[in-house]
């Protein structure tokens, strides 16, 4: 699976049509992806696209999508950008940490860490 063999990389670039960057507005590695439509009847989507749509019926961070698909983050982001453009997923906008973490979440994180 790893190593300098260029074969897998070429296959991966095939997935994105050679693109290295997602289209549209930039999004973070931990932005939350949510499926809006399962794209029934869309024959043009690849297996990987469909896997994303299934996975993100539950909101899921970009990095986790990559882990599930076993694809590099940048490749995953290109696929996600495509799905967003097609209106099949939403990807949340980056928000400053100060706006996302309140005292309740902070407590939850601390307690969660202690429980590990």
């Amino acid at each position: 699976m790893s190593g300098p063999d260029p074969g897998p990389l070429i296959r991966l670039f095939g997935l994105t049509g050679g693109r290295a960057r997602p289209q549209g507005e930039a999004f973070d590695l931990v932005a939350i992806v949510t499926t809006v439509s399962m794209a029934a009847g869309r024959a043009d989507l690849m297996r990987e696209h469909l896997a994303v749509l299934t996975l993100c019926r539950r909101p899921c961070p970009v990095a986790d999508v990559a882990a599930h698909l076993r694809l590099p983050l940048n490749i995953t982001r290109v696929l996600l950008g495509d799905l967003r453009r097609e209106g099949l997923v939403t990807i949340d906008r980056p928000r400053p940490v100060t706006q996302t973490i309140d005292e309740r979440i902070y407590r939850e994180v601390l307690n969660g860490l202690r429980r590990l």
């Binding site: 931990v30 939350i32 949510t34 973490i101």
Partner: peptide, 21 residues
């Protein structure tokens, strides 16, 4: 935020959060 369109997922989206370290 503009998630009104995604019916059932809306509240989940609002509360899902991934914190980066």
């Amino acid at each position: 935020m503009g998630y009104a369109a995604s019916e059932s997922g809306a509240t989940e989206v609002a509360s899902a959060l991934a914190i980066k370290i």
